[in-house]
Every structure is written in structure tokens, then in C-alpha cells.
């Protein structure tokens, strides 16, 4: 067992973990933070996406012991049912989900992805690797492709992400 300190959704948490414990299991099974979901447990579905030190990350592929001192933000930390994050509100506005199981991961992924794009990271769909990427629909679909949704809510998710991206751009301009 190894002692560990994590900041999870703004709260400092101390725990002893088995060295085999993934960050996802530490959150779900030790800390009862079940907002990140387990869809595959090995990096193939995106359901477990959290923001790890500000960047989107698959928590099932990360050992908890490797993250001592890290800051973890889950969908539950981005907003609450009464005070939603703009990305979460956009998912509601566009019905970007059905069963909701992939949704916290999609939300975290979208927040992380928008930040990456704002920082100028290109993607496979980017034509000009030097220019600031423009978040076309093709860009969003490419950048969100690590998050599977078996309910097939992709059209709503795309619209939601574009709404959030537009709001973020408007805020930047203001």
C-alpha cells in the first residue's frame, strides 16, 4: 500500500492504495467519485476521461500511485446539477446523450479538447499545421473520436461542443 494525496474536484483527498490500483478505480472504488465511468478499462472507449492537471486523460490507463499530488477534475467538479459548466449546459441544450454513461467522459474530453485547440494543437484533421486550428465540424469529430457513444448521440454532442466553442470564442473577443 502506498500513501497518496490527490486533489479531486477541488477537495484534498488522502488515501492508501494498492500499487495496482488505477486512477479510475481509486476514484470510483476508494473515494466514491463515480462520475468517471468504466466502459472498457483499457483505453479504448473514453468513458473514464478526467482532467488530470488540466489535460484530458484516460484514468483507466493511469496508475494512481503515479499521480501523487496531482489535481483531478471530473465532470462532477466542472459543474453541479444546479450550476452547470457551459459544456454541460450545451449537452442538455442539444440532447447530446441518452443513457448518460459515456457523458461525463465526453464532457471532460470536450473541455480538454477546447483548451487544446485554443492552445493551437493540431489534429489529424488539421490541414495547416502551422496556423491556429479552426474548430470545424470535422475537427471536432476527429478530436472527440476517443470517446465512444454506443447510444449514437454524436450529432447532439457535436452541436453541443460547437455551441460551447462558440461561447468560448465570444467570451475571448469580449
Amino acid at each position: 500500500m502506498t500513501a497518496l494525496r490527490l486533489t479531486v474536484d477541488g477537495a484534498e483527498r488522502h488515501l492508501d492504495v494498492d500499487t495496482r490500483t488505477t486512477l479510475l478505480d481509486a476514484l470510483r472504488e476508494r473515494l466514491e467519485v463515480t462520475s468517471p465511468k468504466k466502459g472498457c478499462d483499457h483505453g479504448q472507449c473514453g468513458s473514464c476521461t478526467v482532467l488530470l492537471d488540466g489535460r484530458r486523460s484516460l484514468s483507466c490507463l493511469t496508475l494512481a500511485v503515479a499521480q501523487d499530488g496531482a489535481e483531478v477534475v471530473t465532470a462532477a467538479g466542472l459543474g453541479s446539477p444546479d450550476a452547470l459548466h457551459p459544456v454541460q449546459q450545451a449537452f442538455l441544450d442539444h440532447d447530446g446523450y441518452q443513457c448518460g454513461y459515456c457523458t461525463p467522459g465526453q464532457v471532460c474530453s470536450a473541455v480538454g479538447m477546447l483548451a487544446e485547440a485554443a492552445q493551437g494543437h493540431p489534429s489529424h484533421a488539421t490541414d495547416d499545421l502551422e496556423a491556429d486550428p479552426e474548430l470545424t465540424d470535422a475537427e471536432v469529430r476527429e478530436r472527440m473520436s476517443g470517446n465512444l457513444c454506443r447510444c449514437g448521440a454524436y450529432a447532439g454532442i457535436l452541436a453541443a461542443v460547437q455551441q460551447a466553442a462558440g461561447a468560448a470564442r465570444a467570451e475571448e473577443r469580449a
Binding site: A75, A76, L92, Y97
Partner: peptide
Amino acid sequence: HARVDGPLKVTGHALY
């Protein structure tokens, strides 16, 4: 009507 359980789902507070 929007899904009544939407706020719980997008925040991950819906329990499975």
C-alpha cells in the same frame, strides 16, 4: 421536453 435526468447525467451524479 428536455430529459429530466439531464443535469444528473452530464455531471456524473446519476448512479449506475
